[in-house]
Design a binder for these strands. Sequence first.
RNA 1: GCGCCCGUAGCUCAGCUGGAUAGAGCGCAGCCCUCCGGAGGCUGAGGUCAGAGGUUCGAAUCCUCUCGGGCGCGCCA
Length: 586
Amino acid sequence: MKKKLEALLQQAIATLKIQGDVPDDIAVNILIERVRDPQFGDFATNLAMLLAKPAKTSPRQLAEKLIAVLPLDNTIAKVEIAGPGFINFYMDSSSQFDIVKQIHGSGSAFGLSQAGAGKKVQVEFVSANPTGPLHVGHGRGAAYGSAVADLLEAVGFDVHREYYVNDAGRQMDILATSIWLRYLEECGEPVRFPDNGYRGAYISGIAQSIHKNSGEAYRRPFAVAVQDLPPDEAQGGDKETHIDALIAKAKELLGTVAYRAVFLAGLNDILTDIKNDLNEFGVSYEEWFSEQRLVDDGSVDKALERLKNSGHLYEKDGAIWFASSALGDEKDRVVKRENGQYTYFASDIAYHMNKLDRGFDLIIDIWGADHHGYIPRVKAAIQALGADAAKLKVLLVQFATLYRGEEKVQMSTRSGEFVTLRQLRNEVGKDAARFFYVMRRSEQHMDFDLQLATSKTSENPVYYVQYAYARVCSVLRQLAEKGFTRNIALGMDNLTKLTEEHETGLLNTLVRYPEALERAALTHEPHQLILYLRELANDFHTYYNAHQFLVEDDGLRDARLNLISAAKQVLANGLKLLNINTPESM
RNA sequence: GCGCCCGUAGCUCAGCUGGAUAGAGCGCAGCCCUCCGGAGGCUGAGGUCAGAGGUUCGAAUCCUCUCGGGCGCGCCA
């Protein structure tokens, strides 16, 4: 409908240009809005106000000229000028019922569009280091990222979901060493655990299973391992230097093969856990992309070679730097350390080069908000690689603070006592978790009330929306109990009987679904869809409270059933898109 | 200190990319109620959109500054 009005206005402008009322060279972006207040009609445009200045006339005068040359058809009942120069469109009321037939005809496909057809987009999200289980912060990224991806798919994009596995680098070595030390404990070695090691209970679990499977194959005397080591933090030294030395010692004592075995045992165990966790959360990926792979296949070298050839690298203090400050970054960044090792950033450059080479039209990275300072250097890298930095869109997700009623759930990353995503799912369930995570704008800090998420009252938005769906199901069940038979065709013939205020309200909300979906997708704002669903549920509930559906009049009854079935369909489409269940009874 | 995000009703948050009288839920106040599905429904009060300037027909929205909150500023990832 909007597009139709837009086309009509475009024609009107063209006519005015020929008449000389509007300068030829002007190009406007026609904005058509749905109006909130019914007294101003159904749609409105501010076009006349925008064109008034270049046309050297007043908005209202121009609006009159526009209307005079506007090609009309029978779906438009009335066009009026109002306020400072708005053009209001009143649609013919008989067309408002078409939506019921349309939803009935399209079913689960209703609302889908082809807005992004032919465009390949990659969405990379979560990408948490495989050094431990996912926590509630990752949960929000998972819910948000998958929602963004699913929405894009719903509007026609070719979507590639990806998890970047940071399976190379120092953090992984710290993990492997931590596991090894716990393993030594299992073997009965007296171990002093390093201050910078991973302390979670899952580390011991992995160590135990290694011990169970391989016996004492990796046992080495702890005393030898810590011999001549620089002191740890608690011993008055530096924890980083200490652990690095310890890692080196572990590699030396175990040898490449054995060290690698411990390393992989840890990686596989944790990665499997993450995959299961996400799977149970309704999050799936087309690809799990290994950082190690970039190192192994020479991609990192290749990427740096490319930057070097285009003159973006230089050497200083024994390290190799990327001159990112010339491309908008605060300062230059090291890509290869003095000790010859690549930095994390180096493999990230290679990763983004890989993404670019795969020919995506749009690359979406979803990061925790604490990584925002990283954006300029990655954009700089993309530019330096000869691509358009606008191809990369970084979406940030703020952390969520958990509450149980009034009480804040304490989380301390320092002691490793964070709430895991799995714990959250166990407490509130998948549906509530997904809904709550996505309910707010991603860049907004959010308070996640665990108590509210599990409550079975209308205060709980998930419950409220799902309940609307279940209620329609219930009414349809009641139908048979009351001895009625539903006649869909009869209902369609009697749609004009739906003249109650609640009915027109519901019809108007249903019409908006495709727009709401498309907007949520294109702006990467899934909360828009949630908002819409809450509104729809509210419209349905108030209608339900105000009117009886199962009335004696066959035509009216079937018309109402068709209307609420349409609402049911749209609720289902929206909820399924967000990977939230649609229970038939609650 | 510099950079990014944020500040909207008592609370949690929307606000359609600059439009018409700034909305919703909870909470609060009053009224009704036992109805297909339950601790339900209806109505109302409540706002200097943090503050001050600016841009224009028009600003919660865009620009500048101030105040307040969060985060980031490693040859960590």
